[in-house]
Design a protein around this nucleic acid. Sequence first.
DNA 1: ATAACTGTGTGAAAGGTTGCACAATCTAGT
DNA 2: ACTAGATTGTGCAACCTTTCACACAGTTAT
Lengths: 235, 235
Amino acid sequence: MPMSSSNRVPVPTLGRLATYLRVLTELEQAHTETVSSADVEQQTGINAAQFRKDLSYFGEFGKPGVGYSVARLQESIAAILKIDRRQPVVLVGAGNLGSALIGYPGLTEHQMDLVAVFDNNPQRIGCQVRNLYVQDIQRFATVNETLQARIAILAVPAGAAQRVAEVLVAADVRAILNFAPTLLRLPAAVVVRNVSFMQELAVLSYHVSSNEQEENGEEQAGEQNNSVRPILHST
Amino acid sequence: MPMSSSNRVPVPTLGRLATYLRVLTELEQAHTETVSSADVEQQTGINAAQFRKDLSYFGEFGKPGVGYSVARLQESIAAILKIDRRQPVVLVGAGNLGSALIGYPGLTEHQMDLVAVFDNNPQRIGCQVRNLYVQDIQRFATVNETLQARIAILAVPAGAAQRVAEVLVAADVRAILNFAPTLLRLPAAVVVRNVSFMQELAVLSYHVSSNEQEENGEEQAGEQNNSVRPILHST
DNA sequence: ATAACTGTGTGAAAGGTTGCACAATCTAGT
DNA sequence: ACTAGATTGTGCAACCTTTCACACAGTTAT
């Protein structure tokens, strides 16, 4: 007997749902019918109880003593994440990274329909990348009136990010995947996720040098490690 | 009088250090000499106390009543993150994403020296990307004996990731930035950071549709939002 | 000197997330 | 039917992270 109502869903849970979905797709391709939370732990490194709790935010999907129907769970999670229908997405910034993202298979796999690419560089405007022509960012408001994209991928230089983001939001974009290393100041209703290679590299760099003396052979499985010994101490 | 010794540093702290460093570089270019934790909050959206606590893991860097010397703090953080010297980094996977990363300016800015690119696709081996020639991954062990890279960027398809990661680790790589959507099972001593656009997009997608009815104009500043109302409830 | 500010470093509180442990529930075999 | 075995959904405790709040330390002005 479920009772979820207006409880709030942790953001990490949403991220993990995407991981579950990936595993379910693999299982489906292997013609597996049923899966248990323990199986999922085995595949993802995410604790079985965590998996069950993540799902419990949205209802009850499993049968005690049996597990979860792969096909059913897949549909349910897709519905939760709203990727059961194709979603229009726009890309702004057709530089290195932007162009690479156009071909990224993960987008279509997750029903993200890249419908337009924008840039402000006259050298790039009009160019064809994959199956899309790069358009002038100045035309964004007009074009998006037709496209109605609510999700945008922002792959412009840091200096331009805030300005461009405001243009997007003015044209009804509600969610931004931001690759620029800057803080975007936007209305609270707009959701921003920052992808920062910098930060990840910092973590790696720190660890590499601090692990200098350790030596053991355990397996690691979790998606994120938690903390490490500091090494430097300066004043 | 500091007393940090073998306390453990939270991973989020390391990520934020990279952000502070970015802001400090901007401040230096604007010829600002001194900065307070409140200034940093203004620039980054990260709570001032958080900033001070993050630094406190490594020592004392500020003067009460004055703030922090921009130049000094910059050096200190760079030293903590071990990016005060150039670090050799290798890239595996010269596909779309991999190629884009070769040109990514953030790498050099953070003293990451991309010294070699590998792939297993014969069509790509030998090709020049920017200033590097793509080498056969089979030669990795040999080549890295000379290069001595400890950090690797893994931008190969999911199916190849585990296999390649093991090759890297066998050749003394200790930290991997993994762009493949798979769980890497590696010795615990190896640090893995996963970058998953999928997960970020899932969060965006979920939010876009759930925000359907809201309407308010507050500013958002933090780097991460925390939770949201669920909308779906299925069985 | 002293008073009035400003801003650091940190102990303690608040808040959020993860993992354990177990009752409840379903299946299958006898 | 009944028992044994499997596996879910969840209250609770442990853990981790963030934020508050304040003592203490420099700085400036009088």
